[in-house]
Design a protein around this nucleic acid. Sequence first.
DNA 1: CACTGTCAAGAGCACTGCTCTCGTTTGTGT
DNA 2: ACACAAACGAGAGCAGTGCTCTTGACAGTG
Lengths: 249, 249
Amino acid sequence: MSAEKAPAQPPAPAPSIRARVRAEMTDEIKRVALEHLARDGSALSLRAVSRDMGMVSSAIYRYFPSRDELLTALIIDAYNSLGDAADAADGEVDRRDAYAARWFTVGHTIRRWALAHPAEYALIYGSPIPGYKAPEETIVPATRAIATLARVVAEAEAAGRLRTPQGADATVPTENADYAAELRVVAASLGFAEDSWVVERFLGAVTHLFGAVNFELFGRLNNVVNERSEWFDRQLRELAASMGLSPRR
Amino acid sequence: MSAEKAPAQPPAPAPSIRARVRAEMTDEIKRVALEHLARDGSALSLRAVSRDMGMVSSAIYRYFPSRDELLTALIIDAYNSLGDAADAADGEVDRRDAYAARWFTVGHTIRRWALAHPAEYALIYGSPIPGYKAPEETIVPATRAIATLARVVAEAEAAGRLRTPQGADATVPTENADYAAELRVVAASLGFAEDSWVVERFLGAVTHLFGAVNFELFGRLNNVVNERSEWFDRQLRELAASMGLSPRR
DNA sequence: CACTGTCAAGAGCACTGCTCTCGTTTGTGT
DNA sequence: ACACAAACGAGAGCAGTGCTCTTGACAGTG
């Protein structure tokens, strides 16, 4: 693959001028492509990008072997951008605050990132692009934001700060052994306790959270809910409650 | 109560042979276009459709003035197909059953319709198509499936069969007056009681439900949950509980 | 019979992703 | 210092796209 930026020669750490120009060009192409993406939606034209850069279309292929590879690069960048935003937001919450505060902060950050980067959001959380097949290199960055959310809840659980639901509030355990096994695998990979009751609700909460962002961003809330921030906040609140995260007081 | 599929052609005038052939052609184009949509995703090529029909591409324009108009027709058909499926499923539930049974039936029907018609589902619940702007004629059919879900919950509420949440389970009322007003409008349009507490949870449930279908259909559950039917059923169960719909026994 | 509207066909325009070839530029090993 | 290979931008070209316009054939109606 592209291992340019790896000068494995100890005495020659000099990033050759050519390699630097190449990196700048690659970034510039991605930057212009993002502008086009924001303007024209997922219909990304290599020729239009090249025109904006004063190049001929074939020159783009020196940097990205195909339109799909460009899309892959943009997708990975988008996942990482969202992941960075989520991590940064979580990191800035005062650790003396309740875990619920971190949940709200990260949740709102994800929504705000989506509103600020609608094209990138649609790229990674919208319907699949027609001819495009996501390569494996995208799956790790894809999990970052969700992993951040999971960390908050898992740490709350580990700290014994989750109110375990009782009685009618509690979920009936599944009778499907395969499904139960899957939940255990998910619990392990996300850092929850073994057989944690909260894993399933966390998956539901993530589904709900991204469903809400989808609804807002794709216009499904038009003429229904205009106080979107309030609406989203209250959805987050319900989800926190469903996981036993004490609400802010 | 939204109008059903009103076949409201005022009087039936002479269905001239020409008009009949034209209608058949229109249907055939939509049929072939759907096949292509199912195969190639949202990249729909008029020329490919025309080739499949043994026509020249320009002939398509006798029936649809543009690609967008064809898409609009397909989108409306898709919304109505989903709406029909939801209504039919709801209609077949024995009315002596609990309202929860209707909720599960309609919910699972929506999911099954999406799995059976992934291309149509992506068309109506995926990210917006690049150059396409949905005309107003799509917004009424768009609400049908949601209206069906709402009817179930609203009728349960009217029958006094919703367990009103108490204490920690209850949602704190919003302090945002605009948002509260919006909720009242939604309540009125979906048939809920005025100031009904369940409206907000219903909106959340719909968000969650379609978020779950999105996750499954767009591959976000890959390598995470494979027992999708069980997973979805348990999500529906949580949603029913959150709205006070007694679970099946 | 003549008229009128509908139809399929074809040529053409501007656009797309992508390939290939052509000289030129640049970095590096000898 | 020189030579060679890799990298580069430009351009032509291919097959595909949505869409427009013109042309000639046909059908239904006066």
